[in-house]
Design a protein around this nucleic acid. Sequence first.
DNA 1: AAATAAACGAGACGGTACGTCAGGTCTTAGA
DNA 2: TCTAAGACCTGACGTACCGTCTCGTTTATTT
Lengths: 179, 179, 179, 179
Amino acid sequence: MLTERRRRGPQRSETSRQAIIAAASTLFQKHGYDHLTIEAIAAEAHVGKQTIYRWWPSKAAIIAECLSEGLLLPDWFVPENTGDVRADLRTWLRNIVLFLSASGNETLLRSLVIAGAENADVAQVLNERLGVWQVIADRVGDDTIEVGEALVGAIVIRSLRGGTLDEKFADRLLDAIAL
Amino acid sequence: MLTERRRRGPQRSETSRQAIIAAASTLFQKHGYDHLTIEAIAAEAHVGKQTIYRWWPSKAAIIAECLSEGLLLPDWFVPENTGDVRADLRTWLRNIVLFLSASGNETLLRSLVIAGAENADVAQVLNERLGVWQVIADRVGDDTIEVGEALVGAIVIRSLRGGTLDEKFADRLLDAIAL
Amino acid sequence: MLTERRRRGPQRSETSRQAIIAAASTLFQKHGYDHLTIEAIAAEAHVGKQTIYRWWPSKAAIIAECLSEGLLLPDWFVPENTGDVRADLRTWLRNIVLFLSASGNETLLRSLVIAGAENADVAQVLNERLGVWQVIADRVGDDTIEVGEALVGAIVIRSLRGGTLDEKFADRLLDAIAL
Amino acid sequence: MLTERRRRGPQRSETSRQAIIAAASTLFQKHGYDHLTIEAIAAEAHVGKQTIYRWWPSKAAIIAECLSEGLLLPDWFVPENTGDVRADLRTWLRNIVLFLSASGNETLLRSLVIAGAENADVAQVLNERLGVWQVIADRVGDDTIEVGEALVGAIVIRSLRGGTLDEKFADRLLDAIAL
DNA sequence: AAATAAACGAGACGGTACGTCAGGTCTTAGA
DNA sequence: TCTAAGACCTGACGTACCGTCTCGTTTATTT
């Protein structure tokens, strides 16, 4: 039987890895995606720059990993299933606007949009992470993935336009979507 | 009677102003918002850097002005009014996806999203420029501005997710929105 | 008889000219020759930059004019003539070291050296202004212009080397020169 | 026992250091102290600007180091000692005026004067480098440092005044100084 | 146990772009 | 037609980060 022969020498330091993504998350939330620098992450994590470049090809990849590890977005961004689709979506939308209207989180949304628009990998992870599309499609029926895109998209546009994100918005948005 | 006294000395050079926004537009479309540098704009426009810094506070402001002057987006991004609201919106959506699926224009969309997300002024101008919200609201009735946000938002999300932007998408999206 | 007809239009403003050389003198003494800028002179004199460039080819020329007008150096830098050459030179040297050891005047000397070394016109005016060479040569006899150069040069070198400029130095210097 | 522990990480690049002072020396002699720019040095030395700013606080400091390394002035600017003080000084003076009357070297002298007058560190190095003061004082006797200052100063003044620097000047200067 | 080799923290390196300052020229309105 | 004001292009300033590379140290796996 083939036993996977490990290399000689030290292995990747899990401590450093976690320090890096923690530092990246902190700085991302504090200063946004632009203004986030590798040097600052290295300094914040008490880590050499090379340790970052050795394992990640770009700052986008670091942010993607932060997302995968759940350090930037809460886990609960998926609708419940009580049987009443409309009510479930309403609750989900209200949770989201509640989260986004909290201090600092609107900046977070903008930064995530930037990160996703600049880098396809981040977009991919965001897609999976936020991945409500399929859930919604499953509930609403015949693969109307556009419903999910319209809901999430409306939130993004509203936020970028500087509009208020509140429950009234959530309700009116849901009314605008045919189910 | 108050006669507005003009200040002494030379006035702002309109030639330089136009050279700058033209150069900025060119480079924006060629390389995207990130990778767009003030130095490159100055060089392309055969202009001193200081002439840019004298009149614009940031590259975002330059892009905002490019948008205002119609250098980055075509003017016709507003629905017609034939009386048949659904048909008008369908035509409008098809035009948009047609435009975005043309070579290079998806990159343009991403860059505009980044610029708008990074800078509130750009977002404001994009809002006015793309400003279909009110038009749609007027047509569809009782100020459902969320309809416009959902339509535009869905396009953005679809694009960022890397999905195909075609007529089928446009039609299915319209079906998903209650009118 | 033909009276020299003056040109039509305004003549050179004597007010501006004096404001400019006064401002230049002030700034020269305050900040030195390097660190002296045309823009600062124009601002200090409440004068347009062009008014300076119209009449002087360089900042060195302005300083040369300041020297000619006696704004930077006192007039009395010429030995008396009591008949006792040695005593007269001693008094002259002592006056100079007294002047130079006063606060700020050592900086003045350095700045003048810089200005003279950078620009031949300034050197020329300094030569005339400080022009003790011929006076000394006349007194000491058979055109020993090198005596003057050695005396002034020793002062400059002593100052640049950061040495003390006092009466003892003056006396010892005079002793070192054969008369 | 104390073993001097070297710090971790890369050491200063001696190659870069020498390239920088060589470039600085070249440009100094070609264009003078004013007109010498850090950017030009960096470009000439094929070095990043930051590498210069990391190790030198100013261009004056670079020139000071060039002097210390013997890149700007020949080493032989010190009188011999044959026993005949007057003859030795005469030879020394003649060598100096010979050197200075060579093409370009008068400009070099002026630039060095400017550099020394603008910056105390350069003056200090020049003082040590040119340091004939003590040598002369030792020879001539009872610490008459002023003799050296007068000799060197006379040369400087003669040069700045635009006078000719030749053997006749050297001889007459020596005659003017009491030994 | 010794030798080997990769990962580590630190940080110097050649670069690019930043935003500012001053240079010297040119343009405008007012005196 | 000269002045004050100031916009123009140019180019150097000193700083921040980039991504690469080079140290001396630490650590884990062979020999």
